[in-house]
């Protein structure tokens, strides 16, 4: 009897959590296929009279001066900025993490300093960044956005990779050195292949962090050449007549790529996060 009670309690809480997480997504979907009149009707109409998928087509068709153009260009910009930030952070972050994890010296305070930059409010950074980028003529490009996103992604990547490298026995590096490998060969043939899962996880998290970013993008971009999804969606809301179904559709579509990537990287993700808990 007790066991049945606990089982019911367990499933109820699972259901509750799932509902809380999925309800907004479901509501967004309903909004995206509803008509404007359904959404503004009183009393509230929970399900639309007819399913209208026209906004999906609208957003995914590239036509000059249409919401489609804004959305697709923003999608491209977001991808360039997020992937660029993720890749740049890995290129810089992996050697940094290796150094933190392996090389002798008193770098530990530096590692905490790295983390502290992560804790700085973006508002404190935005002015110097804006002035610097403007001086170099780099405002309003996805690539400078990628560089700026590194300030968010890089500390995270360094921390994650340092933690993962620490779980890799030092003797493996040392064995490589005894086998005649120099630092580069040790990293290339031994450490990198063994860090695959961690690198995948870091890349994914970096991508997601940058994908959702709003503040920097809002300040540092001003038109379709660099505007990212989060800002583009906000722009949809800022018009004179706000098209709620369109906003919902854009939100849903912009969430799809990260979900898709996360789904396929799931295995590596779990492995990366759990590295060290399983004996190699």
């Amino acid at each position: 009897m007790r066991r049945i009670f606990w089982r019911i309690a367990l499933y109820t809480s699972v259901l509750l959590v799932t509902t809380i997480i999925l309800a907004p997504v479901c509501w967004m979907f309903i909004m995206s296929v509803s008509s404007m009149t359904d959404l503004t009707a009183r009393p509230m109409q929970w399900l639309p009279a007819t399913m209208d998928f026209s906004r999906y087509r609208m957003l995914l068709t590239f036509e000059p001066n249409s919401p489609g153009e804004i959305f697709l260009l923003a999608l491209r910009n977001t991808f360039l900025a997020a992937a660029g930030a993720s890749i740049l952070s890995l290129i810089v972050g992996f050697p940094a993490a290796y150094s933190f994890s392996r090389l002798p010296g008193r770098r530990a305070p530096l590692l905490y300093l790295v983390l502290s930059t992560y804790m700085l409010p973006s508002a404190a950074l935005i002015l110097p960044i804006y002035i610097a980028l403007s001086a170099f003529g780099l405002l309003n490009t996805p690539f400078s956005l990628a560089v700026v996103y590194c300030s968010i992604v890089l500390p995270f990547v360094v921390w994650l990779l340092t933690g993962n490298l620490n779980t890799l026995p030092r003797e493996i590096d040392q064995a490589a050195a005894m086998d005649g490998a120099n630092l580069w060969q040790t990293i290339r043939h031994v450490v990198l292949p063994l860090s695959g899962a961690a690198i995948g996880t870091a890349a994914l998290f970096g991508l997601l962090l940058a994908w959702d970013e709003f503040f920097f993008s809002l300040i540092l971009t001003n038109d379709l050449r660099a505007k990212t999804l989060s800002v583009a969606i906000a722009d949809f809301a800022a018009g004179r007549a706000t098209d709620y179904p369109l906003i919902a559709t854009a939100g849903l579509l912009s969430a799809l790529p990260p979900v898709f990537i996360a789904f396929f990287l799931q295995r590596s993700l779990v492995k990366g996060l759990a590295a060290g808990s399983v004996k190699g």
């Binding site: 493996i172 040392q174 064995a175 005894m178 031994v190």
Partner: peptide, 20 residues
């Protein structure tokens, strides 16, 4: 002289084989 240039081989307590 760096370890890699000493021409010596070492067997470690935990074997330190390359898992991959």
């Amino acid at each position: 002289v760096h370890a890699k240039d000493r021409d010596i081989a070492m067997v470690f307590q935990n074997y330190a084989l390359y898992p991959h």
